[in-house]
Write a protein that binds this DNA or RNA. Sequence first.
DNA 1: TCATTATTTCTGTAATTTCTGAAATTTGGG
DNA 2: CCCAAATTTCAGAAATTACAGAAATAATGA
Lengths: 174, 174
Amino acid sequence: MNLPATAQKFIVHWGEMGARWGINRSVAQIHALLYLSPRPLPADEIAETLAIARSNVSVGLKELQTWGLVRVTHTLGDRRDHFDTSSDVWELFRVIIRERKRRELDPTLALLRECVSEAKVSESKQLPHLDERLEAMLEFMELTDAWGERAAKLAPKNLRRLAKLGDSIFKLAE
Amino acid sequence: MNLPATAQKFIVHWGEMGARWGINRSVAQIHALLYLSPRPLPADEIAETLAIARSNVSVGLKELQTWGLVRVTHTLGDRRDHFDTSSDVWELFRVIIRERKRRELDPTLALLRECVSEAKVSESKQLPHLDERLEAMLEFMELTDAWGERAAKLAPKNLRRLAKLGDSIFKLAE
DNA sequence: TCATTATTTCTGTAATTTCTGAAATTTGGG
DNA sequence: CCCAAATTTCAGAAATTACAGAAATAATGA
């Protein structure tokens, strides 16, 4: 595909942002392209459009599928797999939250719970407040986890509605 | 310093998590150590405790200072710089939000605004919905930005209170 | 079944990032 | 102002990650 300059700019930036958040640049670019595309794209078209090796696209698409961000579709008269992603940013947000929670937050919670129970019994001279600090961190992660859980359950439309309530929500805290 | 096993576990995990979020492993470990420490630590003690080169600690601490996460302090009779970080997780959260907003969200918003105004005028045959998609993304980022802004302004105590309101807030959206 | 096309896996290379130890610079006390 | 301690800078080594192209595998339909 021949990309308009605007789309190129967006895709390149998306790749850079992905890299800053621990997502491989090409993977982020593939996702950005699919997000802009009005139709599912076959892997070779992605490779050609982004000027990366076909094999890389294959790996990137697998990765995006493990995140639940990309689906395979087929069309009559074409043997090739076609790939697409949701065009709803709130849905994408939901999926990413769910997955990062599963991959990172849950293991961190498990570890923190272990650490907290260990720290309670064994006092350390070097780190006298170890248990307090770990407990504070655990509380933070548990609250984050609960928010993630709830956000992941909400329908995209409601998530958007909630986001728009911003001001009134923050007033609750003052 | 001689680290208790529990503290080691936490620091190692923190390093791995940092790496997944685009933070250098040693940098994240330094921060984790300072978080657990009851007192500011001099750089050489950090290097020794984490078994990394002194020069590396220097660079890592500089990086943490640019994030606003670490301060330098001094004590009488010791020429060395001592470093510490907030022991309040909500304060840390606030600082990180503020900084990621500044570094990543703000530039992304600027770019998206550019893209949206370009896309409005120049129609693309390949990507007929380009403008819609970019506008949806812009709206998402603007809302995220507004939440970040508000969260960064809130006092740590209020941030915690708000986090604990979780359930009742999400009910608003249904 | 066979030929063709599509996809994935694998291997080596390139690029990037991280890290160390030495050298240079800065700081503060005497 | 000089010395010693502390810190930073820097260049290269080590490790990791990303990537391309070839080879292998799988799928399709004639």
